[in-house]
């Protein structure tokens, strides 16, 4: 990676942020027709569409920066598994309602800090996407925080189950704060976000909600890495893109 150009770094960076949005957005869209109530279905679909919308803007920008005539669709539908650099947290299966809420909550705390910082990027396009996305993820955080509190401080059943969800997903949180080569390179020009520096605020925000939710913050231990830096995914990822890319793979170039 010694020869990573600034241009390639920018393409990778924009696409990688987009990957987080697309993959968690796709996961949330899997709740369509399956959510516990119509209100929760609407809530999840709204947020899913926010996240997929963020991915679209970031992919479009990556395509423009790349200058090879590609579009957002090439990034979403015609890349292979190892080309996706989303954090593994975004791709884990939906599980039960608590698992889905915990994943959205952990990610939304991160997203709020991240997009808030991206809004100050020296890259005007990324800054604009950051400012717009910040409003959306602020709501995702509000929604998921309220659910964390009600599940955690609800019945003993809901408390135990959501604590288990937290304990299971915690291993994927460390990856959010790792820096890729592209991020390190762009950081010198004030384009990328220093995500390692977001960890302290993230911990603090998590702890505040967990306290209200009577949940225990797990100890930071070994962190599962791979998606963000190397495109090495969990065994669940192949099924996501098989589902998501089916139409473009079966009918190349199809439009509607």
């Amino acid at each position: 990676m010694a020869d990573l150009s600034k241009k390639d770094a920018l393409v990778q960076y924009a696409a990688q942020i987009g990957d987080n949005g697309l993959i968690i957005g796709h996961r949330m869209s899997e709740w369509c027709f399956r959510a516990p109530t119509i209100e929760m279905e609407m809530a999840l679909m709204n947020s899913a569409l926010d996240l997929i919308g963020q991915a679209r803007e970031l992919y479009s920008y990556a395509a423009t920066a790349q200058g090879e005539g590609k579009t957002e669709d090439d990034f979403a539908y015609l890349r292979d598994e190892q080309d996706f650099r989303n954090a593994l947290l975004t791709e884990v299966p939906n599980g039960d309602w608590g698992d889905t809420i915990v994943r959205l909550f952990l990610m939304s705390v991160y997203n709020k800090l991240f997009f808030s910082a991206l809004a100050d990027s020296k890259d005007a396009e990324l800054a604009a996407i950051g400012a717009k996305s910040l409003k959306e993820v602020t709501y995702h955080l509000r929604f998921s925080s309220e659910w964390m509190i009600r599940l955690g401080d609800g019945t003993s059943e809901s408390h135990n189950r959501v604590q288990k969800s937290v304990d299971n997903l915690w291993v994927y949180t460390g990856e959010l704060f790792t820096m890729t080569d592209a991020e390190n390179l762009l950081l010198k020009d004030g384009i990328s976000v220093d995500v390692a520096a977001l960890k302290a605020d993230w911990n603090q925000n998590i702890a505040q909600v967990f306290e209200q939710a009577t949940l225990t913050v797990p100890a930071d231990g070994w962190a599962q890495l791979g998606g963000k830096a190397d495109g090495v995914h969990t065994e669940h990822f192949g099924y996501i893109i098989a589902d998501m890319q089916y139409m473009q793979r079966r009918y190349p170039g199809c439009e509607w």
Partner: peptide
């Protein structure tokens, strides 16, 4: 009430 507010927003 808080959850009702959020659902009203979403719906």
């Amino acid at each position: 009430a808080e959850m009702a507010m959020e659902s009203a927003r979403d719906v």
